[in-house]
């Protein structure tokens, strides 16, 4: 891996997970740069990071995932990183795939998705039904077949980081991937295994999931058609 990659770990109320997740990263992958971004957690997430002297950006108020992730992207962009990857603080994502993802960026991809369904069949559940809808909407609007659009494990090239860092409506969600694909970004998926979160709670309960699906559908299908195309700078990395 010859490019510089920053691992961005957004953390909101992850006191039960953060020590294990970042500890594993530091111990087994010391070659990787990372930063934990505490999103104004109400639990001891920040204190635990300080106690372990983890690399930490501590946001004093809660911004939500998209604002928090953007903080990480801004940091990565201004510190000259060639790529940045979102890595969840709950232990769902495995660091062993980061190197392989970085290789795809080196080969010229703009967005590399750590995908559960490149070679594997999608299981039948309510959540995967939602994933299928988003997959279909992206295929309809951009012609790309993204098999795991809701995977949170995504790596971005520097030229995409620049767009994510300084524009509105560029949260780390499938609608952004769809929009960037329409702007000509190269999207690549690699097969990964994801683990279940161990402690804490996912922020996606039933009503939040319904809202999420509404926003994604309207954004990809309706708004996507009207958004002005951003020009990706020539020459990646």
């Amino acid at each position: 891996m010859s490019i510089k990659v920053l691992v961005i770990i957004p953390a909101y109320n992850e006191a039960g997970n953060i020590e294990r997740v970042v500890g594993n990263l530091e111990k087994n992958y010391p070659q990787l740069d990372y930063v934990v971004i505490n999103d104004g957690s109400r639990d001891d997430t920040a204190e635990i990071c300080r106690k372990n002297s983890f690399h930490l950006i501590d946001q004093p108020v809660n911004l939500g995932l998209s604002g928090t992730f953007q903080t990480g992207i801004k940091y990565a962009y201004s510190h000259g990183y060639d790529a940045a990857v979102q890595f969840d603080g709950d232990g769902q994502h495995r660091p062993e795939y980061i190197e392989q993802m970085a290789e795809e960026i080196e080969k010229g991809a703009d967005i590399v998705i750590g995908s559960r369904f490149v070679n594997e069949e999608k299981p039948k559940s309510l959540r995967m039904f939602g994933s299928n809808i988003i997959q279909t909407l992206i295929r309809l609007t951009s012609g790309r077949n993204i098999k795991d659009p809701t995977s949170g494990m995504r790596m971005y090239s520097r030229r995409v980081m620049r767009i994510l860092a300084f524009n509105m409506n560029m949260g780390p969600e499938p609608d952004t991937v769809a929009y960037l694909a329409r702007c000509g970004a190269k999207v690549k998926e690699i097969q990964v295994i994801m683990d279940e979160r161990i402690a804490g709670e996912s922020y996606l309960n039933l009503s939040a999931s319904a809202r999420y699906m509404m926003v994604m559908s309207v954004s990809i299908l309706l708004i996507g058609a009207f958004r002005p195309k951003i020009k990706l700078q020539e020459g990646s990395v």
């Binding site: 524009n167 509105m168 409506n169 609608d175 809202r211 509404m214 926003v215 309207v218 954004s219 309706l222 708004i223 009207f226 958004r227 002005p228």
Partner: peptide, 19 residues
Amino acid sequence: VIIEIRKSKLQITDSLSWF
């Protein structure tokens, strides 16, 4: 609503109720 989104003055999540 579309014009404001195009100008990056409105967040997509906030536009939903207007649609």
